[in-house]
Design a protein around this nucleic acid. Structure first.
Length: 892
DNA sequence: CACTCCCGCCAATTA
DNA sequence: TAATTGGCGGGAGTG
């Protein structure tokens, strides 16, 4: 073989290669012939292919150089193999017989055999379409490259496209996680939604492919003018790319891939010609339509098309137009996305309390984990710095600049919401699933979640952390997605209000008037009570500080209790774990998350602070969403960020008390109760099923009441009678609810809880809501212990007993709204929202307040953003970062 | 000749 | 600084 290889190599690319090879081989050259021992070892085995393991081992063992060599060699091998298989041996041999090197060349190479499409098929053949959710399949680029006998560059081409569809996610350097097609439907759905937003009209009108397409292009611009450049979707992409290097990433294959897919999904005919796609993509990207650019775009589209073809999503066709026949691709993948999730659901869902939770968590984790990592990676960059600074800044600054944008965004959002709604209704069922955990609870409601969540799932990126994680992760992911909307609304609605959530003041939690706190969805948690009392106090303190900023430190009052932290998810998961955890990591994560918040501020700075604060919860959500959607307008993110920020702070506090503050995250835990602590452990809260009410939110009612715990709320919000905390359902899901005052273990998955079910129903939206991790705590004392869940049901949580302050309600509603988009059931909320720009209120609520609170405009993000968010969840953090960058970078 | 798209240089990012 | 990623476009196969 070796010999052959050599010959092959040389022959292959005649001159060029040889020289190159030699140079590369350099050291090896001599060796080369000889082949390195290692290789030999490997090769010894007759079937290199099969034994991936061996390869891996080898690869890992091998030094980089080795790898390269091997790769090259291997490349050939595969080729040989493939050739043999593909091509009739006889032929080859025949030729070969006499053949000289040249002949070899001829045979081996055939361009076709080396095509990206074929390579992709090989690649895909190595992984199951629907891997068990439990197992995580990691893909080592080096390994795969060597196995498939291609250079790594080619693998990137494949992976980038797959990543855009969430079939894989990047876990770390050189490592990707294989998700399979479980979330494909969701992803497609998301893309479709995003596409509609962007190209929406086009769709409708389009009848004819091209023409339509063209229209699209034009419309697109019109529609999306804002920002667009970036990928809309993001989802996956968002991952990081966006953030930091917009420039580079914007163009990224991933984004192009998503956009390309969107075109198909939006197109009635489902046929898109390359040139049209290229034009559209170029437009989006930039005005300049250089011919050269066009050519380049087309090249890339071929790359993408080859991969998509391998996925059986499209097939090549020819469209004959006036001018003649043009190459085009037809979408042969699913058009309607019923939910693909089912599969997932099957697994995770439900069943076990623990498991459920865990599972869900796990699943999510996985995904999320990846996401996180990615997130980290990408995000870290930006986020870190910005985060803190931002936060602080944010707190101080209020800004408004973006409001306008926000408004715009709002409108967009509204539109989106409408669209979403419809879709949701249509789709509803779909998505839900995935998310596993969420679903559990959700299941009943199911639908809801899905949307937001699902997308995420893919993301899963988030994932991560172990433990507690699970819970959180979910939240995170979910939240983000959903959140946007919520966030948006909230922001909008309440800018002024209290908004504890907002970061601005730091108060994330408390709102002045209102009794609730908002947390970023991502993070949330809580629940448990008392975990750390200490922390609590600290937290409280922190909170207080935050609050102070806002103004009232006092408010902060120790009571605060609750706080909740929402750490962003990432942390959360881990958080859950505990503090300890890798704090550092967590922090990091958090930061990243934070960044989001920060981001917001950064960019915009906009308005932020103050105004938003109130809505913070929402905002957070928003952020998320935004993240998801790259498109999102800057404004939204900002807000979101802010909010998130706050939460973060809280988290941190909670968590550790560390100094840090803000970032941290808390894992969730949140022991919110610390204060409560008084009562030790407390979990005084009753968990209301997520489903229930607020879409995503979960309410926690203090069993004990411990109003104090919530204290913050109390201070601020005396109004509320009941002390409750709203947590995004997602989050809850992860958590076990406890009904009992005493908290319980987290295990039980909330969702399942009886309550939840009911609730869920109402809130189908919840999922979305969930995204936003808002907590609402009321100080009030009431504690209805009980039935929280049930009561909660739909809209309002337990109001009856409790009465939640309007605000809360509102908030909830707002949240929902957001989510709705994603999810679907949001029904009421949406409606409300739509009408008014601010989505806030749910029916039950009284508008008045809300408006006040929510009104704020800035919150909105672009619809796109929403979508993105949805998609992403995971990436929130990262996305945030991205956004930041983006926002900064690409102004609208 | 037009369509495809492989190949790999090399810059941007990351580690 | 080294390695990883990934944009990009020359130019080679194919039909």
């Amino acid at each position: 073989e070796n010999i052959f290889d050599r010959s092959r190599m040389a022959p292959k690319t005649p001159i060029k290669n040889e020289p190159i090879d030699l140079s590369k081989q350099k050291g090896c050259t001599p060796e080369r012939n000889p082949i390195t021992p290692v290789k030999i070892i490997d090769r010894p085995q007759p079937d290199p292919w099969t034994p991936t393991a061996n390869l891996k081992i080898l690869v890992s063992a091998a030094s980089p150089d080795m790898r390269d060599r091997e790769k090259k060699k291997e490349l050939f091998r595969p080729i040989e193999n493939s050739e043999q298989s593909d091509i009739p041996d006889s032929l080859q041999y025949d030729i070969v017989d006499d053949s000289t090197v040249d002949e070899f060349e001829k045979q081996r190479p055939s361009r076709k055999q080396k095509s990206l499409g074929l390579l992709c098929q090989k690649f895909l053949a190595r992984y199951p379409n629907y891997p068990l959710s439990t197992e995580k399949t990691t893909i080592s680029l080096d390994e795969v490259a060597s196995i498939l006998g291609v250079e790594r560059r080619r693998i990137y081409d494949i992976v980038n496209v797959l990543e855009s569809l969430h079939l894989v996610s990047r876990v770390a350097k050189n490592q990707y996680c294989w998700h399979g097609r479980h979330n494909l439907s969701q992803t497609l759905k998301m893309l479709q939604e995003a596409g509609e937003l962007q190209y929406g009209e086009l769709m409708t009108s389009q009848h004819k492919d091209q023409d339509l397409e063209y229209k699209f292009g034009e419309r697109k611009k019109e529609t999306i003018p804002d920002s667009q450049d970036r990928p809309l979707l993001d989802f996956s992409e968002s991952d990081c790319s966006s953030a930091s290097a917009n420039s580079r990433k914007d163009k990224s294959l991933r984004i192009m891939s998503q956009k390309f897919v969107m075109l198909f999904l939006v197109s009635k005919t489902k046929i898109v010609t390359l040139d049209i796609a290229a034009k559209i993509l170029i437009e989006e990207t930039q005005d300049t339509v250089d011919h050269s650019k066009f050519k380049t775009k087309v090249r890339r589209l071929y790359d993408i098309a080859n991969v998509l073809t391998s996925l059986d999503l499209i097939k090549k066709v020819h469209v004959t137009e006036e001018r003649g026949r043009k190459p085009a691709f037809k979408w042969i993948g699913p058009v309607e996305f019923p939910e693909k999730t089912d599969e997932l659901r099957g697994h995770s869902p439900t069943s076990d309390p623990l498991p459920g939770t865990q599972r869900g968590a796990s699943v999510q984790y996985q995904t999320s984990a990846t996401g996180k990592q990615k997130f980290t990676r990408h995000a870290s960059f930006n986020s870190a710095q910005p985060c803190e600074a931002t936060r602080r800044k944010v707190s101080s600054e209020p800004n408004s600049p973006h409001q306008e944008k926000q408004d715009e965004n709002c409108s967009k959002i509204i539109n989106l919401a409408a669209v979403c709604r419809q879709k949701i209704e249509e789709d509803t069922g779909n998505k839900a699933c995935d998310t596993k955990t969420i679903l559990n609870s959700a299941k009943k409601s199911n639908i809801t979640l899905p949307s937001s969540l699902l997308p995420v799932p893919g993301d899963s990126d988030f994932c991560v952390n172990p433990l507690p994680q699970a819970v959180f992760p979910v939240l995170q992911a979910d939240v983000p997605s959903f959140s946007l909307p919520t966030g948006i609304s909230s922001q909008a609605s309440h800018p002024s209000t209290p908004a504890a959530s907002k970061t601005e003041n730091g108060k994330p939690i408390l709102v002045p008037n209102q009794p609730f706190l908002c947390f970023p969805s991502s993070s949330l948690f809580m629940l448990c009570g008392g975990l750390q009392e200490k922390n609590l106090s600290e937290l409280l303190a922190t909170a207080g500080e935050l609050g102070n900023r806002s103004a009232e430190a006092q408010g902060a009052v120790p009571p605060t209790v609750c706080q909740k932290r929402s750490s962003h998810r990432c942390s959360s998961p881990s958080a859950a774990v505990d503090d300890e955890e890798p704090a550092a990591k967590k922090r990091t994560l958090e930061h990243s998350f934070l960044p989001l918040s920060l981001v917001v501020p950064k960019k915009p700075s906009e308005s932020p602070k103050a105004e938003y604060s109130p809505g913070s919860g929402c905002s957070a959500a928003v952020h998320l969403e935004m993240d998801r959607f790259d498109l999102t307008s800057p404004a939204a993110p900002e807000e979101a960020n802010k909010e998130s920020i706050k939460p973060l702070d809280c988290h941190e506090q909670e968590k550790k008390s560390q100094n840090k503050d803000p970032d941290e995250a808390p894992p969730g835990n949140e022991h919110i109760s610390k204060e409560n602590a008084n009562q030790p452990f407390q979990p005084q809260y009753l968990y209301v099923q997520p489903a229930a009410g607020l879409g995503s939110f979960n309410f926690l009612f203090p069993a004990n009441q411990a109003p104090g715990a919530i204290s913050l709320a109390a201070n601020q919000m005396p109004s509320l009678s009941v002390p409750c905390v709203m947590v995004p359902s997602a989050a809850l899901a992860s958590f076990p609810l406890v009904c009992s005052p005493s908290f319980t273990s987290p295990l039980s998955p909330a969702p399942d809880g009886p309550f939840s079910a009911a609730a869920s129903t109402n809130f189908s939206m919840s999922s979305q809501a969930s995204s936003s991790p808002v907590f609402i705590s009321t100080t009030a004392v009431v504690t209805p212990k009980v039935s929280p869940a049930p009561s909660v049901d739909a809209q309002q949580p337990p109001h009856p007993a409790l009465h939640m302050s309007p605000v809360l309600t509102r908030s909830c509603s707002a949240v929902k709204l957001d989510s709705p988009v994603c999810v679907g059931h949001p029904v009421t909320l949406l409606k409300l929202q739509q009408p008014s720009s601010a989505p806030l209120t749910p029916k039950s609520i009284r508008p008045a307040h809300h408006e006040t609170f929510f009104k704020t405009p800035g919150s909105l993000g672009d619809p796109v953003a929403w979508k993105k968010n949805e998609g992403n969840q995971t990436r929130n953090a990262s996305s945030v970062q991205r956004r930041l960058e983006i926002s900064s970078t690409s102004p609208d």
